[in-house]
Amino acid sequence: MNRLQDVFLQKQGNLLNVYFTAGYPTLHSTRPLLRALQAAGADLVEIGMPFSDPLADGPVIQDSSTQALKNGMTLSLLFEQLAGMRDEIQLPVLLMGYLNPVMQYGMERFCADCEKVGIDGLILPDLTLDEYEREFKPLFEKHGLAAVFLVTPQTDEARIRKIDALSNAFIYLVSTASTTGTKNAAQSATEAYLQRVASMQLQTPAMVGFGIKDRSGFELACRYTRGAIVGSAFIDALQGASEEDFPALCKSFVERFKSPVSTT
C-alpha cells in the first residue's frame, strides 16, 4: 500500500489535492512549493509536467506550462529536483502530464525514476484506458504507481465500472465537460452528476477536479466524494510570487478551502 492509497484510508474528512506546474512560477519552485503545501495542510499534491500542447487544459494552466518551459523545465530536471524529497515530504505526490514527453523520456525509465524519487501515482490524460490495460499496467504496478483515470459527465455507467475496476487510488471526476479552469462547478447539473456517480457505490474513492475555485465548490464536491483537486486557482495565486512568499501564500490558499485543522 502506498502513501496515496493510505491517505484515503487514514485521513478522515475532506481531502484537498493541490496542483501546480513544475517550473512555475520559477524554475526551482518545485521543492519549496512541496514544503509549503505540506506545512499549509494540503492532503495531496499533483505536479504538472509541462508540455507545449496541453490539450485538456484551459488558458491558466497552459500559460503556466509555457512559462515553465521558457524557464527551462524538463523531465530530467524535475526528477533531479524531486530526488530525496521523501526525507522531508510525507504527502502523497502524483505526476500529471501528457504522453509525448514521457514517451521521449522512455516509459520504463520514467516509471523507474518515479519510484526512485517516491512518486505515488500518475495522471496521464491522453493515456487511454485501453492502452493502459494493454501495455502499461504491469509496468505501473511493478513500480508501485497508481494510475488515476478521469470520468466526465458524459462517461456512461459501464465505462465508469471499468475505470473503477482498473483504479487503485482514486477516480478523478471532471466536474463539467470542460477544460481546466472554466467556470465554477457549483451548478445543479454538476450536482446531479456527482450524485449519480456517488449512488454507484464504487470501490475506489473519488475526487472532483476542474473548475473548483472556492469553498462552496469544494464543499459541494465533498458532499459526494472524498475531496477536490484545485489547479488553475492555485496557479493564479502563484502568479508573480517568489519563494519567500510560498509559506504564507500556501497557508492562506489552503484556508480558502479548509478550516485550519488543530495539530494536536
Binding site: 508540455f51 507545449s52 500542447d53 490539450l55 518551459l69 524538463t74 523531465l75 530530467s76 501528457y98 504522453l99 509525448n100 514527453p101 514521457v102 514517451m103 521521449q104 523520456y105 491522453d126
Partner: peptide, 21 residues
C-alpha cells in the same frame, strides 16, 4: 521527425529531445 504523440495521434513529429513540439 521522431515518433511521438500529438493531437491524439501517434506519428512522426518535429520535437525537441524532451518531447516538446
Amino acid at each position: 521527425g521522431r515518433i511521438g504523440i500529438l493531437h491524439g495521434c501517434k506519428t512522426l513529429l518535429m520535437q525537441t529531445p524532451d518531447g516538446q513540439v
